[in-house]
Simulated scan of single mutants.
Amino acid sequence: MRNPAWQRDELILALDVYFRESYNKLGPTHPTIKELSYILNRLPIFSTELRNQTFRNPDGVYMKLGNFLAIDPDDARRGLPSYGKLDELVFREF
């Protein structure tokens, strides 16, 4: 079972971290990434039946920031290009 797609509110929280922190100093074990993972897991957006063990875990949160890196026109690094349309819409909005 796949985890549900990221929703707008989740993406805004992740984008906030992307803009506040230096991506190259982050990683799945960074306290900010762990905190965001914790917060995302407590949001009442999805029922527990729709979540698997990896739901918004630190690895997935860090990967989402890598998707934003791929969208960011001000950063020459490649990032993770498998981002979704909503990722790009939220990035461009903010």
Rank of each mutant, 00 (worst) to 15 (best):
M1L: 14
N3W: 07
P4W: 00
P4N: 03
W6S: 06
R8W: 10
E10R: 01
L13C: 08
L13Y: 04
D16C: 06
V17R: 00
Y18G: 00
Y18D: 01
Y18K: 02
F19N: 05
F19H: 13
S22W: 08
S22N: 12
Y23W: 13
Y23E: 07
N24P: 09
K25I: 12
K25T: 15
P31F: 03
P31K: 09
I33R: 06
K34L: 15
K34H: 05
K34F: 08
E35T: 07
L36H: 06
I39F: 03
N41L: 03
N41A: 03
L43H: 00
S47M: 09
T48R: 12
T48S: 14
L50F: 06
L50D: 08
R51Y: 04
R51V: 04
N52H: 08
Q53P: 04
Q53A: 13
T54L: 01
F55M: 01
R56E: 00
R56D: 02
G60H: 01
G60N: 09
G60M: 03
V61H: 00
V61C: 05
Y62K: 02
N67Q: 14
L69H: 07
A70Q: 04
D72K: 10
P73N: 11
P73F: 10
D75Y: 05
R77W: 07
R77K: 11
R78E: 14
G79C: 13
G79Q: 08
L80E: 10
P81L: 07
Y83F: 12
K85A: 10
D87G: 09
D87M: 06
D87V: 12
L89A: 12
V90T: 08
V90A: 00
R92P: 01
R92E: 10
E93G: 06
